[in-house]
Design a protein around this nucleic acid. Structure first.
Lengths: 356, 356
DNA sequence: ACGCTCGTGGCAACCGGTTCCCGGGCCGGA
DNA sequence: TCCGGCCCGGGAACCGGTTGCCACGAGCGT
């Protein structure tokens, strides 16, 4: 009664089982499977036959620990359900497998604690890179925490990538890939103002979220540039969900807020806002104009098709893994800023009746 | 010059490094970290201090191979970008982490070859369960292939779960969780027919895809039940994307097809169809009624809000992992069939002018 | 015919952990 | 005082692979 499972059925096969069945040593099996080492044809076929008979697959963890094995890469996001995140995840996946890496994706559901747990877990997995995506509260504590993570990842030969999230202090070993929220929002809002709108309602996300902040800054900057004062009562905050947009518009209408256009911080928010507007008997863009942000595929199917700003999410994901994985050890820390552009559809028109 | 990295900075820490720094043996470190074994307070604090100083994290792969370690579960889908898949992924993730498992999600981009690769890879990872999701071509070859996979997974102590995909031959060690495509489509189409529609255009997916087939069957069954003959020229096929719906409607209109309602096999498809209809100057539901399938969150934001059938995708995902993981070794193979229900919104009305 | 490569394959160390088994020190009870 | 336990920690085997090193046999040149 040895520890070898020599039976023909059931149980997990080890390389030694295969070796025994083929009448060779474990090393030989490993070499046959590895493919680099010269092995006589007869031995090779015997081994391959045993592998097939036993339906053997080498344990990936064991390979990994022994130095062979597929490298891994981790992608940590808030919620896979958000279309923009999903597209990034898609880009990450594609590029990772193209580069021969396995990619793990983890949803934190917006929980900062879980995010830390995941990062730690990925460090334990010896991931070649950890990509963090989505805005956060940019507090001092946050920066410090991220810096610590960046350091410990770096010292373990891994790499922290921040994607769509603000950079840390210079000198921190981190790769940052952002897209320009502020300019996008600026251009979008400028478009609205150029049409003659003067009271545009801003539907924000969590005030502490950097993505939400960037978009709000763009909104404000556009107002400043055009010399129109932005009424602070026209800025409402919720989150990035459809329901948030719906709720905020109902609230605005109930409060009797006066506005001729709505700038939602997300297409999802815009989508909810649109139905709330419709439910209130308002038509878009005749009664009120509406714009979103992200250019998710659905944006063009709303009625009217939504004017929004296009963000190359899939490229973002691809780029994140590429720069992280193909980076030379001592290269300077990269900080890429991807451009966005507004795509004009039919949801914006000049205000029907110019106020003031 | 030993192999131990005793420096204070850089490099991957091993348990032996920690042991050396704390002046104990590796076993002791392992025990402190494990928490079960009695260790004196002084030793424990020394070890913990060394762990902190060195920023040590145990290698998850090594733990796994040694029998400790977090179990893993794999989720293989076609495209994370599809909203319904994303929701399932979400459910899977949540439930998996709730049950203390790490979940890997892999997108195959609809490539059957990559799907096999992933399954093999997950087998190599010794995943506790492999969840396959989404329709497929239900060929003899497919069933055989899946049966083989189910067997080899089972013999390795793992489990194959088919989610939203047809069952295999009885006796195959597999868990199947389906939602009822045919009844849902039946109810939906019956709703259309009950309103007086007699010529409803069906926008299908790939004809070989089982999900697409199920929905088509429901469409046909509803016709039969009502005694209305379904004109075969009113069945167009593409895939489950928005663009497919858009294209198919343009094509139908160009061909001069005669129909008063459209039944899209997916909300995404319906979404594209809707804009194509609008672009052609047709209004919904006055000129033509439209229904979808899936009840993705956006469905209610289309204009008009889309009548569709609700599928509990997130529950589906949750259920898949729960039944797979909490199953007792010799339990009979489960086959769950989840119900769906149609949600009536404003995209359906009686045909404006009754034909024939 | 002898010695040298070269082709081939086994042994054993190693990857980074966990855990069984055992032994030393200290305590209390007889 | 002596002995039995208990508490605690170390050594070593093991998990399932990979790979450096070495030995053995055959073919070949001289």
């Amino acid at each position: 009664m040895t520890r070898k499972t020599t039976g023909d059925v059931g149980g997990r096969r080890t390389i030694r089982d295969v070796a025994a069945r083929a009448g060779v040593s474990a090393s030989t099996v490993s070499r046959v499977l590895g493919g680099e080492y010269p092995v006589s044809t007869s031995t090779r076929t015997r081994v391959m036959r045993a592998v097939r008979d036993l339906d053997y697959v080498a344990d990936a963890r064991a390979k990994a620990i022994a130095g062979a094995g597929t490298p891994t890469l981790a992608f940590v996001l808030d919620d896979i359900t958000g279309p923009s995140f999903a597209h990034m995840a898609h880009g990450v996946e594609r590029e990772a497998t193209r580069l021969g890496h396995l990619s793990l994706v983890c949803s934190t559901d917006g929980d900062a604690e879980r995010q830390l747990e995941f990062i730690e877990m990925m460090r334990a997995q010896r991931a070649a890179a950890v990509i963090l995506v989505g805005g956060t509260a940019d507090t001092a504590e946050y920066r410090e925490r991220m810096a610590r993570i960046a350091d410990s990842l770096a010292s373990a030969g891994s790499r922290l990538v921040l994607c769509g999230r603000p950079p840390l202090d210079p000198g921190t070993p981190v790769t940052v890939i952002e897209y320009d929220n502020e300019s996008g929002a600026y251009a979008l809002c400028a478009h609205l103002l150029a049409q003659g709108h003067r009271r545009v309602l801003f539907l924000g996300g969590k005030p502490s979220n950097t993505t939400a902040q960037g978009r709000e800054q763009g909104y404000l900057a556009a107002h400043r540039a055009r010399g129109v004062t932005a009424d602070p009562t026209l800025r409402l905050f919720g989150d990035f969900t459809r329901d948030s947009g719906h709720r905020l518009i109902r609230q605005a209408l109930a409060q009797g807020l006066d506005f001729t256009a709505v700038m939602a911080s997300t297409d999802m928010v815009a989508s909810g806002a649109l139905t709330a507007l419709h439910e209130a008997g308002l038509s878009v863009p005749e009664d009120v104009s509406l714009v979103g942000y992200d250019d998710i595929p659905f944006a063009r199917d709303l009625n009217p098709p939504l004017t929004t700003v296009h963000v190359p999410y899939e490229d973002l994901g691809r780029l994140a893994v590429r720069t992280a994985l193909t980076r030379t050890p001592d290269a300077p820390d990269e900080h890429l800023l991807l451009g966005t552009h507004v795509v004009v559809r039919a949801s914006v028109a000049p205000p029907s009746e110019t106020r003031e």
